[in-house]
Design a protein around this nucleic acid. Structure first.
Lengths: 326, 326
DNA sequence: ACCTTAAATCGAAACGTTTATATTAAACAA
DNA sequence: TTGTTTAATATAAACGTTTCGATTTAAGGT
């Protein structure tokens, strides 16, 4: 492996001079600098990341930790993260699975963005205590070395509920997410608040785990109870909504006809559905970019600028006005 | 930062003994080993990856390089890669973008799996010359340090074409992929071979770039030419097929009625289409697993076992029998 | 001419490991 | 006892950088 030492020998200078030249420090004269660079190129020199990292205690790498690589949801998010870190000379790597957690404490990365319930709060707090900088996207955690970029889940859930109610639905099904999910809990809290404001609305809560299958199960349940006025259904994420969507259609019933349906997240997939799925949208790209920005600000010691990720309602024919207006 | 040195001091032994103990070498006696481990735990010791890597010249990290993070396609593939490398004590990181290429020559990773046309053949060959181990999924490249896991593109394209022809279609549209894509070229070659065997079939080639938009464009073109017997359409990947699918439906025409459609890749999305899209399927999980396996075998100097990724036809109502049987 | 100052380069230590070799201590054989 | 072998531990070098402080060289001031 060709190292700085080889360049030094070849160019007839000391290794420190080579190092300065390669990092183009003003300490070295232009003439020697160009000579050294020429030699470096000639020898096909590539710096050794491990050595640099050992000495400088930084890797210029940011890690994004995800629950899985399934992606439909993550594409834009990761793209947003990547653009920001690249702009500052960092690289983004994506990791998944408990085994790769080690990259953080072993200092292989300069900071991490967490969207992975496989990390416990305690684990994250311990890393933070050790001095690692984190941005969490899936929980709230107070620590000097942790920041969070939060989605306005509550506003979203309110929008979804109001949309159904405004369209005249008086019987609502809520398909929940897993209880250990922060997003799910937030959304559910807002649902309850909306219901408190609307005592005239009857609500049924169905279990769910944010996966398609649980949406299908909920769909069957609802179909079996169908009678009278079409109910409104709010699935706490789109993936379940899609499962429910298809189950309903497979049973010969109509989305927007026999029931109204609203999802949450506006994942890409929904664009392929017909009729269009009403859902709650937000910029995943912005969410990722914001996370990266905060992380880099922490790392460089700057003041961290906080910003919420706002949500909005995407209307769709999966919801149609029913019954008496209130 | 607490290092091996601190443990040595605290435990009253030399740093080499600590190192041996932590790597539980048989050289150190059980008693001191347990004492050292106790001290390590007490001090919250975590090894420093950069230092270890610098000395051992290995990182136990494998990198997967993708064109983008969009993912619909990559989920299973990455999962397959990850399972295999994890089983051997390695970690998988996912990277995208030219900027992150540096991780390879700078020896941050022990090997790479490439599915990213942003790498030129020359670039990859140069890395291989430097001693880096690579597995390529999107091209053929001969080098001692490079292996490839190839999809049986040709068999797939043949299956697709034969399926359309067997169903009586005598006019076929082929929606191509980008000419710089290996997969696209392979599939196209097989298409031409099939056509050579079937002089009775008329074929029209339409441009495409593997993205949804180009499928839509092709769909419009085909719609404008619709007359007489319904044609068969083979989109060289599913993404374009979906674009075409929706364009046709949006224009009030029927998939499987006014034309037959076959895709390639069997991406998850197709499960959400109705009628079902006929397509060419293969195990992406297996593809990823095979890539990892080959890479690790190269790294450990074992004999590399090659295996093709076989494909099969998934029938769907997007194709229906037409015209006179041949 | 000599002293001072600045500019360019060098030497050496440090980052935290691993590992080959050396040392010490204990165990055994004669 | 004394020498020999083995087991346990220690010393030191190495991995490839960065960077502080030291040295050399040239230039400028008087």
């Amino acid at each position: 492996m060709v190292s700085i030492k080889d360049i030094a020998k070849q160019a007839g200078v000391s290794i420190s001079t080579v190092s300065y030249a390669l990092n183009n420090s003003p300490k070295v004269t232009l003439e020697t600098k160009t000579r050294i660079l020429a030699v470096a190129k000639e020898l096909n020199y590539v710096p050794n990341a491990a050595a640099r990292q050992l000495k400088k205690q930084e890797s210029l790498i940011i890690g994004a930790f995800l629950t899985d690589f399934s992606g439909a949801f993550y594409g834009d998010l990761l793209q947003g993260m990547k653009e920001v870190v690249n702009r500052k000379g960092y690289d983004l790597i994506v990791c998944s699975g408990k085994q790769s957690h080690r990259l953080l404490p072993e200092r292989m990365i300069d900071g991490a963005i967490i969207l992975d319930s496989a990390f416990s709060d305690e684990e994250l707090l311990e890393y933070a205590d050790r001095g690692h900088r984190l941005v969490v996207l899936d929980r709230e955690l107070r620590h000097d070395n942790i920041n969070q970029v939060l989605l306005d889940n509550k506003a979203g859930a309110n929008l979804a509920m109001d949309y159904l109610i405004e369209n005249g639905h008086r019987k609502l099904y809520i398909v929940c997410g897993p209880p250990d999910s922060y997003d799910s809990r937030q959304r559910l809290t807002a649902v309850r608040q909306t219901l408190d404001r609307h005592p005239e609305v009857e609500a049924v809560f169905l279990e769910g785990d944010f996966n398609k299958a649980s949406g299908e199960a909920a769909g069957k349940k609802i179909l079996s109870e169908l009678s009278g006025e079409p109910p409104g259904v709010f699935c706490l994420n789109d993936e379940m909504a899609i499962g429910l969507f298809q189950t309903v259609q497979d049973h010969g019933k109509g989305i927007g006809v026999d029931l109204s349906l609203v999802g949450f997240d506006n994942i890409d997939l929904t664009r392929y559905l017909s009729p269009r799925l009403a859902t709650i949208e937000y910029s995943k790209h912005r969410w990722g970019a914001m996370a990266s920005q905060q992380l880099l600000q922490m790392i460089s010691g700057e003041q961290v600028e906080h910003e919420r990720i706002y949500v909005s309602l995407v209307e769709g024919e999966s919801v149609r006005p029913r019954g008496a207006e209130s």
